[in-house]
């Protein structure tokens, strides 16, 4: 088994707002091995970004990790000093964001912003940093890198800017790249190009990627492992195949039914009914309960434990517990 690069254990992150504690992440655990791609899926508001920002420690002012551990190579980064954290960000772990239009500073040149990270984390002098910046731009497929270095973000298209963001994130060769919906804000052809680029770079540079998305297609095409989030919790985890073909959580099943594919072309797409839960007032039981067609009494009262539903495949849904108990009964009566 390869070494665990990043381990998130029982992460709880809340925002302390005027209207109360918004429990955005409620006990998320996962681990990431070096060189692997982990997908995080879930609908809007399920806590994907907050999980990612918790790892980077770039939560908005009111946000705070209230419980849990984030281990990078065995060290809990929550105990890092300011200096250590500065060194972690951008050097060990980088992030690219959803909206490339607003993620670059409009008042500085591309070159300035690219070189900033390089100068910060390496011993390179200005000239070398500039050469490195140009090299990175070439690597991410930006043409005329020398000219681009002198340009301002507003002079570049959205796809170009996302390439610049990727170049910036990878300039110091981090071990981990977190991509928070890197293609959501781009149009379809550009989306495909950016994903292709990320796959290529991952092969070339060998970093591990946490791919946050609500696009199951992206998950299927790139991820080694997937976690499905709902209401700030992990409801199912496993290989992409397991999640797709043997979904074992009612929410995941709904999620898959709600996307068009070649198999269900002729069927009607079924959206998941109901609205996302109120994070200010989390239910006692399963977070998905109020929207679940098969909810049972216990679902309302107790949070389901994560149980094995297959090889490399876990889910937290009382339905599975029920099923297993029934099977045991059948086995016993035989």
């Amino acid at each position: 088994m390869s070494e665990k690069l990043l381990e998130v254990k029982n992460l709880h992150t809340s925002f302390f707002t005027d209207s109360g504690e918004v429990k955005a992440v409620n006990g998320v655990s996962f681990s990431l091995e070096s060189g692997k791609i982990l997908g995080i899926v879930g609908e809007s508001g399920s806590g994907k970004s907050v999980t990612a920002y918790s790892i980077m420690q770039i939560l908005a002012g009111t946000g705070k990790v209230v419980e849990g551990e984030i281990l990078y190579k065995g060290e809990n980064i929550l105990n890092y000093s300011k200096q250590q954290m500065k060194n972690f960000r951008g050097k060990k772990c980088s992030i690219i964001f959803q909206d490339p239009m607003t993620s670059l500073n409009p008042t500085f040149t591309i070159g300035n912003q690219l070189m900033e990270a390089i100068l910060l984390h390496t011993d390179r002098n200005k000239e070398e940093a500039k050469a490195r910046a140009a090299e990175m731009l070439t690597l991410v497929g930006v043409n005329e890198p020398e000219k681009r270095l002198k340009q301002y973000p507003h002079e570049l298209s959205g796809g170009m800017r996302q390439r610049v963001m990727i170049a910036m994130a990878l300039a110091c060769e981090p071990d981990i790249l977190i991509a928070d919906e890197p293609t959501t804000a781009l149009d379809v052809t550009i989306q495909a190009q950016i994903l292709e680029l990320m796959k290529d770079l991952q092969k070339q540079l060998g970093m591990a990627i946490i791919m946050v998305t609500h696009d199951l297609g992206v998950i299927a095409s790139m991820c080694d492992e997937v976690i499905v989030m709902y209401g700030g919790r992990v409801c199912e985890r496993g290989t992409a195949d397991a999640i797709f073909y043997h979904s074992s959580h009612e929410y995941t099943k709904g999620l898959i039914r709600s996307i068009p594919s070649t198999q269900n072309m002729k069927q009607k797409l079924i959206p998941i009914a109901g609205t996302p839960i109120n994070l200010l007032n989390m239910p006692k039981g399963c977070a998905f309960c109020s929207r679940c067609d098969n909810a049972m009494k216990i679902c309302l009262e107790q949070i389901p434990e994560e149980i094995w539903v297959g090889e490399d495949h876990l889910a937290s849904c009382w339905m599975n517990v029920k099923k297993q108990m029934e099977q045991e009964k059948v086995g016993a009566s035989k």
Binding site: A60, K86, F97
Partner: peptide, 16 residues
């Protein structure tokens, strides 16, 4: 301070 590019800068490891 609430803009995305400030978050980007922080994420790069730029000091406060």
């Amino acid at each position: 301070l609430g803009q995305d590019y400030v978050r980007t800068a922080k994420a790069k490891g730029v000091s406060q």
